[in-house]
């Protein structure tokens, strides 16, 4: 599990200063009840949301700058030609045999919170990768890790590339690994609490055939989970 963060007044003040002069992500904007602040033109991106189902006893979440669980859908304007590209596409991962479930659950369209809808990978840094079968201009990636308990996943990094090995031409569209513990580079996105509304990431038209999602455990246990990932964009 990610090391405990030591709260720092300096850190907090610095974060507030940065927050005041940067555009907010769809997640942060929705958490603050604000309108999206990404592109001026386009159509709203929509998806179906699963019902809320929270189980069990909440676990402490000692994570800095944590964006609380959304109570309404995040909003994002995307180009009119945007479609769902990932449904039914092949998923591979850093672990061939997940602990629970199968990698295909990630693109099967089911976002329910119950048993049998999620895939669980072992502890430590793990990744899953969606093959869109052809290069695409990606508008957004929408991620549901696990939402039957309020928790935050550590070191969430989302990358897009035409290289299946992610050695060249990699665009990082989201990174909340604030201390670079995954060695993929230090990120400035805010960690967030999972909810049925998922994590919506503005991909800003990044190009690539493959989408890779990293994580490193969560605030409740060491494991890594995915219920569903949607990649929205336009095939090239």
């Amino acid at each position: 599990m990610k090391k405990q963060h030591i709260a720092s007044t300096v850190f907090t003040i610095a974060a507030l200063a940065i927050a005041g002069c940067e555009k907010k992500s769809p997640q942060e904007a929705a958490a603050g009840g604000e309108a999206p602040s990404t592109i001026a033109k386009g159509v709203p991106l929509n998806t179906e949301f699963p019902p809320e189902l929270i189980e069990g006893t909440p676990q402490p979440m000692d994570v800095p700058n944590l964006v609380q669980a959304l109570v309404e859908p995040p909003k994002l304007l995307v180009p009119e030609s945007t479609t769902l590209l990932s449904k039914g596409k092949m998923v591979t991962g850093s672990e061939e045999s997940p602990l629970i479930g199968e990698l295909s659950l990630i693109t099967d369209g089911d976002k329910e919170a119950g048993e049998g809808y999620y895939v669980e990978l072992s502890g430590g840094p793990q990744w899953v990768q969606i093959d869109l079968e052809q290069s695409a201009e990606v508008s957004a990636v929408w991620v549901w890790h696990f939402h039957s308990q309020k928790r935050a996943y550590n070191d969430v990094v989302i990358q897009i590339s035409d290289d299946a090995e992610f050695k060249t031409g990699v665009t990082t569209i989201y990174n909340n690994d604030y201390d670079d513990s995954s060695k993929l580079g230090k990120g400035s996105d805010s960690p967030y609490v999972e909810s049925r509304f998922g994590l919506l990431v503005d991909a800003k038209g990044a190009k690539g055939r493959y989408v890779r999602l990293h994580s490193q455990g969560n605030t409740s246990n060491d494991s890594n989970h995915y219920i569903e990932v949607e990649v929205h964009g336009k095939a090239l």
């Binding site: 019902p51 809320e52 929270i54 189980e55 089911d110 329910e112 119950g114 048993e115 049998g116 809808y117």
Partner: peptide, 15 residues
């Protein structure tokens, strides 16, 4: 506990 935390627990009918 909130109603949202007290709902019936679901499962994938395929299983």
């Amino acid at each position: 506990r909130a109603v949202s935390s007290s709902q019936d627990i679901g499962y994938n009918p395929k299983l």
